[in-house]
């Protein structure tokens, strides 16, 4: 029956004042957020950029017309042409293909950082905030220690010790990125831990972990997601920075930071070698930032 629904039928179903199932209630909530999200054109542009990045990463092998590591020394440092759409680098590799394949690396980093940083930050922050007292003191001092170091320096030191590789770069970025999430989650937890809806579940005999997981964490997720999206630009920049310094991805990987670094000797005469991956970094960072701003308007409870 539902398959016969027209477009406006779906709309009415999503906006129903009395949802008939849990699924409908949830979808309707998401749809309402989408409605207010799409009123912000910049946010929609941000979303498009991010979706575009994901699509490019998925279809990279089909989109590129050369292999990213294929060298052709006869064609080194070619300017953009119909054969090499964005030119070639010092080893005659097609920059267009490399940038496209590089998106996979960028997404990989972003994804890994996200799935480590968010649970870690939420765990530390909500635990500290909910239990308070000595637990809070200890956890927050640890957080402060990590926050005290400048991010890039700490990441550099870590990679210097562990050896350069993408995975180590991710770990380095992670250990420098989680503290703000813990702070946000803690602040959010403290404001709600005495509310009556928390007292009500306590009074039903729920365990502390159950309360944390089912009742407190959902209240923190929106500010954390917003922060994460806004942070992604920074993560991409640090990853590129580590790549640029030779401490992240290693040649011949088409990581964007690494590509800039390798092209910098040719910046004056063959500007495209460095500039193209630079533009890629810029666009993707911008996309995440715009998306984050838009999400903040929709999700952040302090705005409503």
């Amino acid at each position: 029956m539902k398959t016969e629904k027209t477009l406006s039928g779906w709309r009415d179903w999503l906006l129903a004042e009395t949802p008939e199932s849990a699924l409908q209630a949830r979808l309707s909530r998401i749809y309402l957020s989408w409605l207010s999200f799409k009123r912000n054109p910049l946010a929609v542009i941000g979303l498009l950029i991010v979706v575009f990045l994901v699509l490019i990463a998925i279809f990279a092998p089909w989109l590129s017309n050369h292999l990213p590591t294929d060298q052709n020394l006869a064609d080194r440092l070619q300017p953009p042409s119909s054969k090499y759409w964005l030119g070639t680098d010092e080893l005659g590799r097609d920059i267009f293909s490399r940038v496209i394949h590089g998106s996979k690396i960028t997404l990989y980093i972003v994804f890994l950082v996200a799935i480590i940083v968010v649970p870690l930050g939420l765990f530390v922050g909500t635990t500290a905030g909910y239990f308070g007292g000595i637990t809070d003191k200890i956890l927050m001092r640890i957080t402060d220690v990590f926050m005290a170091f400048p991010r890039l320096i700490l990441a550099l030191a870590f990679v210097a010790v562990m050896g350069p590789s993408i995975e180590n770069a991710v770990i380095a970025i992670t250990i420098t990125s989680w503290p703000p999430y813990a702070r946000i989650a803690r602040a959010e937890t403290i404001t709600i831990r005495h509310s009556e809806f928390i007292l009500a579940v306590q009074q039903q005999g729920a365990s502390a972990w159950r309360i944390l997981l089912k009742h407190i964490v959902p209240m923190c997720t929106s500010s954390v997601i917003v922060r994460l999206t806004l942070d992604m630009a920074g993560v991409i920049l640090i990853a590129a920075g580590l790549g640029f310094l030779g401490l992240g991805a290693q040649p011949p990987s088409p990581e964007w930071g690494l590509m800039i670094s390798q092209g910098r000797q040719y910046l004056l005469d063959q500007w495209w070698v460095s500039t193209i991956p630079g533009i890629a970094i810029f666009i993707v960072s911008l996309g995440f930032n715009l998306l984050g701003d838009g999400l903040r308007d929709v999700l952040d409870p302090t705005n409503n």
């Binding site: 949802p19 849990a22 209630a25 509310s195 009556e196 809806f197 007292l199 009500a200 579940v201 009074q203 039903q204 005999g205 729920a206 159950r210 089912k214 009742h215 959902p218 209240m219």
Partner: peptide, 28 residues
């Protein structure tokens, strides 16, 4: 069981009525 004063503060803002009611059933 207890009923609190402020009906605006005593329900979890991100849980549907269904979730609110099934929570005690799950706990017990």
């Amino acid at each position: 069981q207890m009923v609190f004063q402020d009906p605006y503060a005593s329900l979890h803002p991100r849980h549907t009525v269904d979730q609110t009611l099934s929570e005690p059933l799950q706990i017990h």
